[in-house]
Every structure is written in C-alpha cells, then in structure tokens.
Design a protein around this nucleic acid. Structure first.
Lengths: 111, 111
DNA sequence: ATTACTAGTTTCCACAAAGTAACTACATTT
DNA sequence: AAATGTAGTTACTTTGTGGAAACTAGTAAT
C-alpha cells in the first residue's frame, strides 16, 4: 500500500499497516522466513498469488527495506530473495499471529 | 475480508490474513485495546475512516468473534464495543508491530 | 414544528487491487 | 530454426474496497 495518508499518519499502527498491512505481504514474508528463495520458488509456494501481483509485492517489500534482492548476471536470469534485519524482526510477530489463529480455531472445533 | 479462498486455505497465515489482514481491522482492534467504546468515540478516534466503512468493519469483527457488541434499549441508541478474549489475545501482537515500526523508523532517522 | 442526539444505512460512484493472457530478453540446447 | 529456462512486463478487464452525501428512526428538548 502506497497510501500517503497511512504512511504519514500520527498513529504508528496506521503507518505499520501502510507498510505490511495488505493481504499478501505477511504471507510472503512469513513464507520466506530465514531462507533465500528464488522467484519461481515463491511463485510455487505462495498460495493463490499471480506472478504479476507477486512481482509487485516483492518490489514494494524491497523498496521498504524488508526484503533483499540479489540478481546475478546470468542467463537465464537468477534472482534471490531474502529478508533484511527489518524483515527478520517481523518473523516472531507473524509466528504469534499463526499461533493465535490456530489456538482460536481449535477453540471453535471443541464446541 | 470475506474471501473464501483465504479463509479456507491450508496455510494458517493465509487464514489469519483472511480475518484481520486488511487495512482497518488492526487499527480498530489496537485502538479499542482494553476499553469499552461507543460508536461515536470510535468514529472520532480511528484516523481516516468513514462511518460506512467503520460500520462494516465492526460488523465483520463481531461476526468473527473478535469484538463484542452490547446494545441498550435506549433513545438515542447506545451501543458499546469491547474486545473478546480472541480480540484481547491480539493486543500483545499488535503492540509488537507498533514497536517494530517505531524501532525501524528510528533507525532510518539516524542515517 | 423543528432541532438534537446516536448509530447506523443506502445508493451511486470512484479508486485500488487483482486477474488474464500474451509478451519480453538472451544464452543455451535440441 | 525452434524450443527452453528464468524472471519478469504489459495492456486490458474484472473485482473488491472505499468514499460521498444524503437518508433513517425514535425519543426528548426547544
């Protein structure tokens, strides 16, 4: 999300949502985790996403310094993606979200 | 987000994003925190939102058992919103997101 | 009769995000 | 010459989300 109103809001949660608060970024960042992955691997692993959207999201994550992109001068082209320090700092947070989701889904199933 | 593909995905992060991963819900939940607030207070406190969107988001949060809505038979009408256990469990997670955002914003300013 | 209050609701429109399907570039392989 | 591989890109279309502005209901106050 590039919405300036969000990114320059006084509320820090609003600014955070402006960087990572859309449907794809938490999924992508969580999936990369501590690995180094290539574009095709991400394409295969991220559920439901199209290459067009994946490319856009990766570009924005790189611009926001959450993701690092290394490209090698080869043919066919080889590009590798991995999380920066900023991105890695999100991992425990996203792990908590996954645990939250599983915990309350389990609660529902016990009814 | 009511997208069935997200809510029934095998990936728990995708399901979590299906419930809370849009631009308004983290902001609203974080803002309510441990308080009990009325609709008008939320309208005044949530930055950038319109009443139409606020109403929609509150409705979905109630449907997903993240928010509790109590309405009193009064005129003018009085409705109070507060987080459920499921919602309260999100607070430390969102606090971490706010801290993450502030930490890395501070890093940028030091350059 | 009109205004005020609260918590919405509605309709139409605008915009952002996503989807589709074809296309790109270049070295290598067949 | 054609096919292959990778990592995208593009143009158009569709869908989802949000915005604007007016409206609603009922009791109480003016």
């Amino acid at each position: 999300m590039r919405d300036k109103r969000f990114r320059s809001s006084e509320c820090p949660m609003t600014r955070a949502v402006g960087q990572i608060g859309n449907k794809w970024k938490p999924i992508i960042v969580n999936l990369i985790s501590k690995r180094t992955l290539r574009f095709g691997q991400l394409d295969a692993l991220v559920p439901l996403v199209t290459r067009k959207v994946l490319t856009e999201q990766l570009k924005e994550l790189v611009e926001d310094d959450i993701l690092k992109r290394v490209s090698y001068s080869e043919t066919p082209p080889r590009v590798e993606y991995s999380l920066t320090d900023k991105g890695l700092a999100l991992l425990p947070i996203f792990k908590s979200i996954v645990e939250w989701n599983l915990a309350f889904e389990k609660k529902i199933k016990k009814r």
